[in-house]
């Protein structure tokens, strides 16, 4: 079969439309996330309800057991729980999304993209994180109402600190996604890591300084200061901010490297996309 137009050499018909840039990519994945969010609200509502039930058990159960001691540390628990829901969302957004594409059959099309597989996976992860911010904000609002706690809400500071904090977790999500591409049905094991975030979020960063280099730890401490003490971003020391950004960058790069290595190994073994 050949082109009926003799002036168009066969196979020259494509590749000429306006190219999409990273802006278009970001818009497309965000819009897809938005569509699924509004079209299937039960998923989002379900996630919020489960988070709140979990918090309710923690709050009321803890108050029965610990009484005043819990009430004294309630602000810290609310902030920590807010960060934990964000972290779980960020981590699972990348790893689960890759797993879902692998099992569904759409991974190949995200692999064969001029943007590169990793940037597309990252963009999809960011889109899910935006959604997680919305649901976590609802969870935070309900927690504040239920517990009667008052927190400072410097929005810009919270957004910046929380974003850099969960970037390190997204790095872990990338690594987990890479392992999923390579080893497939290991989702349950990878999800266990989410409970490890509780330890990281509540780690005593100021007492054990080495823990600050772990994901979440330093960011969690800064978020506590921002939301409990009302510290603004410009009031943090440059060293604190540098550490926040540095930890985020290191874990994202490391996660990306694991993802890249795992994808390459999967291609070598011929298991990319097989489920």
């Amino acid at each position: 079969m050949s082109s009926p137009d003799p002036t168009v050499p066969p196979g020259d018909a494509g590749g000429e439309s306006a190219e999409a840039g990273y802006y278009h990519l970001a818009k497309a994945v965000l819009y897809r996330e938005y569509l699924i969010f509004v079209r299937y609200p039960a998923n989002a509502v379900g996630a919020i309800v489960v988070s709140l039930i979990f918090f309710g058990l923690l709050f009321y159960g803890g108050r029965m057991l610990a009484g005043q001691a819990l009430t004294d540390s309630l602000e810290g628990i609310v902030v920590g729980y807010f960060l934990w829901t964000l972290s779980v969302g960020a981590y699972s957004s990348v790893s689960n999304d890759i797993r879902s594409d692998v099992s569904w059959g759409t991974l190949e099309r995200h692999f064969m993209t001029p943007f590169g597989f990793a940037p597309v996976a990252f963009a999809k992860g960011v889109a899910k994180v935006v959604r997680t911010f919305l649901t976590s904000t609802v969870v935070l609002a309900v927690m504040l109402l239920v517990t009667g706690t008052t927190l400072a809400l410097p929005v810009v500071t919270i957004l910046v600190v929380a974003t850099f904090t969960i970037l390190s977790v997204m790095g872990l999500g990338f690594a987990a996604g890479g392992l999923s591409v390579l080893y497939k049905r290991i989702g349950n094991w990878l999800n266990l890591l989410q409970f490890g975030f509780v330890v990281l979020i509540s780690a005593p960063a100021f007492e054990l300084s080495w823990t600050e280099f772990l994901p979440l730890v330093h960011g969690s401490a800064l978020l506590q200061r921002a939301m409990r003490d009302g510290t603004r971003i410009w009031e943090f020391s440059p060293a604190d901010l540098a550490l926040l950004v540095g930890v985020a960058a290191v874990y994202v790069v490391a996660g990306y490297a694991v993802f890249h290595y795992a994808s390459r190994r999967a291609r070598r073994l011929g298991v990319l996309g097989d489920y």
Partner: peptide
């Protein structure tokens, strides 16, 4: 969506 992923402005 897939036009964008393939690098074309839809």
């Amino acid at each position: 969506y897939f036009s964008t992923i393939s690098g074309v402005d839809p």
